[in-house]
Amino acid sequence: MRVTNMSEAIRFHFDVDGENFSSAGEASVMVKKKLRQLGFSPDVMRRVSIAMYEGEINMVIHAHGGTADVIVGEDAIEIILADKGPGIPDINKAMQEGFSTASDNIRALGFGAGMGLPNMKKYTDYMQIDTEIGVGTTITMRVNY
């Protein structure tokens, strides 16, 4: 983890390992701890945690890992998840509750119910998906506080 402390914002950077499922979610646990130290309310922490965790897991199970950046701004927490995975062919479909391309292997690990993206949308105030087939996906989310 790299922490940058500029005058206007605190920034956390993580590399999310896509080869090792057992570490999936580590960055989100770390961010929650940092937000608690910074004194954020349980509600804000919970929303950031769930959205980031779902996105982090997605990067591991669908996109061979990537990077996660969290920027604590003046009135919002921004989460940027970037990967060089396969991209999302149909965003509208992917956003539907229950839609999942996860394999049975993934489901045996407890994930792949197709609720991740809808959940990320639900718990954040802003969410944008930039994706290109064969190039990767970047998801930007914001939770206002």
Binding site: S22, L109, G110, F111, A113, G114, M115, N119
Partner: peptide, 23 residues
């Protein structure tokens, strides 16, 4: 299914599960 816990759980304090992994 941790996916379901993330999507449907509200304020339950206890999780019972047969799944074993750090997630």
């Amino acid at each position: 299914m941790m996916s379901d816990v993330l999507a449907y759980v509200k304020d339950q304090g206890v999780l019972l599960t047969g799944l074993i992994n750090p997630q």
